[in-house]
């Protein structure tokens, strides 16, 4: 039995107030909410699919696409903001041609906005698969992204 089935089994007979914990569990194990999993959640909680999407899209934390091979977390905390993290985010979005919360078509990169990753002294900071990049600039961003792309080649 796969992980999704295990989670669903745990919630057999649950009521609609379990919706958000269920979605959180699924996202934790799968990395995102697939259409299939949402339909299955609906069957257990007796909720229409549209209702679940309504709840899930309301919160920024839920993703509907699997993470890319290289998951980029962009810090939008106060210190990073002051040092221009909004430009950093815009630049990454422009380079990868996707928005925050999405994954590139080739499945290589995905972007996530995070509130603070505790490295304010290094602001603006991004983290790719847990590896931190400090004081990023537009130029250094190009290098960083290219280096990851080359890794794949």
């Amino acid at each position: 039995m796969d992980k999704l089935e295990l989670i669903l089994q745990e919630y057999q007979g649950a009521k609609r107030d379990s919706l958000i914990p269920m979605l959180q569990d699924i996202q934790e194990s799968e990395g995102f909410l697939s259409e299939n999993s949402i339909v299955k959640v609906g069957n257990i909680l007796h909720l229409p699919t549209s209702k679940i999407y309504g709840v899930a899209t309301f919160y920024n934390q839920f993703r509907f696409q699997p993470n890319g091979k290289f998951h980029i977390q962009v810090c939008r905390g106060t210190a990073c903001h002051v040092l221009g993290s909004s430009t950093v985010l815009k630049e990454i979005e422009k380079k990868l041609k996707i928005k925050a919360g999405q994954t590139t078509r080739d499945g290589l990169f995905s972007i996530e906005i995070v509130a603070c990753i505790g490295a304010c002294g290094l602001a603006p900071v991004i983290s790719i698969n847990g590896q931190f990049f400090a004081k990023v600039t537009i130029d250094s961003l190009t290098e960083i992204i290219e280096s990851f792309r080359n890794k794949e080649k």
Partner: peptide
Amino acid sequence: GKDLNAFAAHNYVYFGRHE
């Protein structure tokens, strides 16, 4: 009806079906 809902939040609220 069950298949029309509001999605997302703030300035991006969307009214439609899940597909």
